[in-house]
Amino acid sequence: MAGDFKISVDGREVTAHEGETILQVLRREEVETPTLCYHDNLTPAKACRACVVELKGSRALVASCERKAEAGMEIQTESERVVNARRGVFELLLSQNDTETAPNLVAQAQRIGADPEHYSGLRYERPLYDDNPLFVRDYEKCILCYRCVEACGVDAQNTFALTVSGRGFEAGIAAGWGETMPDSACVFCGNCVAVCPTGAIMDRREHQMRVQGRYDESQMQVTQTTCSYCGVGCQLELHVDQRTNEIVKVTSPETHPVTFGFLCVKGRYGYSFTEAGRE
């Protein structure tokens, strides 16, 4: 194909397409690469550094999720430096965050042999923000992946209700002027919830069920439907608790050509009419 070229991955020559990132090549070649902040439909934040690889000629390791592949690149994904750096990233996060609702993070950490006890020290201590009827924010779980900020901003929603505030270890996600969601510019589309990889922002219903010990993933059944509110035709996934026949949350597939996983407040949260007349 025109615009194709070769790069070397762990000594193996592979084909890359013009414009692809190193991560895209690695995924196609089934080279397992941990990622945390990366999201297919958002600008790479290159913030977590889980995906770093060694690039010949570059002093520091490079984030494969952001760096474009170029002809002749020589990449190592299993060198000592890479293995050490990736493990370090996960160990640092495990020493800081509550990972209870981040099974994907924990699984990747285990896969690469990260030791949760390697570092100790100050953990994130943040209040729980339960300030609106639709979702709850528990920033002790936040890994500062920037996804919610990007989804709320230019990458999808263009509402600009969220920012990163502060600096260093004090840095964290804030709504509006460091205030409640209702006081901020938020329109409650829930797109931040949809992209959050750690459960730091979570639909309120799921959160409450978890607190009450009622949430059980295996009881969740996903029903596909099309949103009936307008003519755009967003595909919805209704996550229904089979035990109660209650909708727990609504999402949209990230691969859907209309939504890319993003919805508006009506599609995501306007389902209470389905429960009308129920106790």
């Binding site: 640092l92 020493s95 990163v164 600096r167 260093g168 270890f169």
Partner: peptide, 21 residues
């Protein structure tokens, strides 16, 4: 360094804090 880290990336944001401790 812990005070001046911009906070963007994990190795520096958490790493400088751990180093300081």
């Amino acid at each position: 360094f812990a005070h001046e880290s911009c906070g963007q990336c994990v190795p520096c944001r958490v790493g400088t804090q751990r180093q300081y401790e």
